[in-house]
Simulated scan of single mutants.
Amino acid sequence: MNTTLFRASSRGHANHGWLDSRHTFSFANYYNPDRINFGALRVVNDDIVAGGEGFGTHPHDNMEIVSIPLYGDLEHKDSMGHTEVIRSGEVQVMSAGTGITHSEYNANKEKPVSFFQIWVFPNERNVTPRYDQRKFDFLEKKNQLVQLVGPKDDKENTGMWMHQDAWFSMGTYDKGVEFEYKPKKAGNGVFAMVVEGEFTVAGQKLNHRDALGVSDTDVVKLTADTDNARILLIDVPMVF
């Protein structure tokens, strides 16, 4: 088993006033040659956007992009004609493919919005751009993982899909609950990030927003160390 620890305190940080952003991997003005990616996982940004502010229209191509709001209201507009608001408990998946433009704004002028923006390298380039959004019950369900995203051709996928052999899952657990996660494809690694509370993952104690990358293993053991502890698991190819 190989592990890589990503302490929350070691992340890149940019505060633009309207945007307070923390980067697990190299992004924008933050560059760390040891923090480029974890397998096909390229970007994990933890963003807080002030009321009424946001990212103006900008382009993407050949990237699978997942947005997970933690609180607040995130308004999305894109060149495919979508205008949507994403809220806590919902997840958005976008395949940039041959190229799209989009904007993301805080739809609430009085309160901030907090969300994860996550990029995964695709297994197929120059696909037709696409958008999907769905509400999940990972906030209500306890002590079980809820699958959010999986590969397009996975017949057992219970979430949305992307152009990569990657699986996203989220779960909220009571203190003391132990469970195991098995990578869904041989050779995949697991990026485990604590969203709320504390966990022990593969023997490593993790606090709020800490993460652990685990590879070269058939199973990852996890224990919730606090009540209402929430964790995000991203199961991705290490070679792609």
Results as ranks from 00 to 15, higher is better:
residue 4 T to K: 05
residue 5 L to M: 05
residue 5 L to V: 05
residue 5 L to N: 03
residue 7 R to E: 03
residue 8 A to N: 15
residue 9 S to D: 10
residue 10 S to V: 02
residue 11 R to E: 10
residue 13 H to W: 01
residue 16 H to G: 05
residue 16 H to R: 13
residue 17 G to W: 08
residue 17 G to I: 06
residue 18 W to F: 04
residue 22 R to C: 10
residue 22 R to L: 14
residue 25 F to G: 03
residue 25 F to P: 07
residue 26 S to Y: 06
residue 28 A to K: 13
residue 29 N to H: 13
residue 30 Y to F: 15
residue 32 N to A: 12
residue 32 N to F: 07
residue 38 F to Q: 06
residue 39 G to F: 08
residue 41 L to K: 12
residue 43 V to T: 12
residue 44 V to N: 13
residue 50 A to D: 13
residue 51 G to S: 10
residue 55 F to H: 06
residue 62 N to T: 08
residue 62 N to C: 04
residue 65 I to W: 04
residue 65 I to P: 00
residue 66 V to F: 11
residue 66 V to I: 15
residue 67 S to N: 09
residue 67 S to M: 11
residue 69 P to L: 10
residue 70 L to M: 15
residue 71 Y to D: 14
residue 73 D to L: 00
residue 75 E to I: 02
residue 76 H to D: 05
residue 82 H to E: 08
residue 83 T to M: 00
residue 84 E to K: 14
residue 85 V to L: 04
residue 85 V to E: 04
residue 89 G to N: 14
residue 89 G to H: 12
residue 90 E to V: 08
residue 91 V to H: 08
residue 92 Q to Y: 11
residue 99 G to C: 11
residue 100 I to M: 06
residue 101 T to A: 10
residue 103 S to N: 08
residue 104 E to L: 07
residue 104 E to F: 08
residue 104 E to C: 10
residue 105 Y to Q: 02
residue 105 Y to N: 12
residue 106 N to I: 12
residue 109 K to S: 09
residue 111 K to D: 09
residue 112 P to H: 00
residue 112 P to V: 02
residue 113 V to C: 13
residue 113 V to R: 05
residue 113 V to Q: 06
residue 117 Q to M: 09
residue 118 I to H: 11
residue 121 F to T: 09
residue 126 N to K: 02
residue 126 N to Y: 05
residue 129 P to K: 09
residue 132 D to T: 08
residue 134 R to G: 09
residue 135 K to W: 01
residue 136 F to P: 06
residue 140 E to W: 09
residue 140 E to R: 11
residue 142 K to T: 07
residue 143 N to R: 06
residue 144 Q to P: 03
residue 145 L to E: 03
residue 147 Q to D: 12
residue 150 G to Q: 05
residue 151 P to F: 09
residue 152 K to A: 02
residue 152 K to F: 11
residue 154 D to I: 04
residue 157 N to W: 02
residue 160 M to C: 01
residue 161 W to I: 09
residue 161 W to E: 14
residue 164 Q to C: 03
residue 166 A to L: 10
residue 166 A to K: 13
residue 167 W to N: 12
residue 167 W to V: 10
residue 167 W to H: 10
residue 169 S to H: 04
residue 170 M to F: 13
residue 173 Y to A: 00
residue 175 K to T: 07
residue 175 K to G: 07
residue 176 G to M: 08
residue 176 G to T: 07
residue 176 G to W: 06
residue 177 V to M: 03
residue 177 V to P: 04
residue 180 E to L: 00
residue 181 Y to H: 06
residue 183 P to E: 05
residue 185 K to Y: 01
residue 186 A to Y: 03
residue 186 A to E: 14
residue 188 N to S: 06
residue 188 N to F: 03
residue 190 V to G: 01
residue 195 V to L: 14
residue 202 A to Y: 02
residue 203 G to D: 01
residue 204 Q to F: 01
residue 204 Q to G: 01
residue 208 H to D: 15
residue 208 H to P: 11
residue 208 H to C: 11
residue 208 H to V: 15
residue 212 L to S: 00
residue 213 G to N: 04
residue 216 D to L: 02
residue 217 T to Y: 01
residue 219 V to E: 04
residue 220 V to W: 02
residue 224 A to R: 02
residue 226 T to M: 10
residue 229 A to S: 15
residue 233 L to W: 01
residue 236 V to M: 12
residue 236 V to W: 11
residue 237 P to C: 12
residue 238 M to D: 07
residue 238 M to I: 08
residue 239 V to P: 00
residue 240 F to S: 02
residue 240 F to M: 04
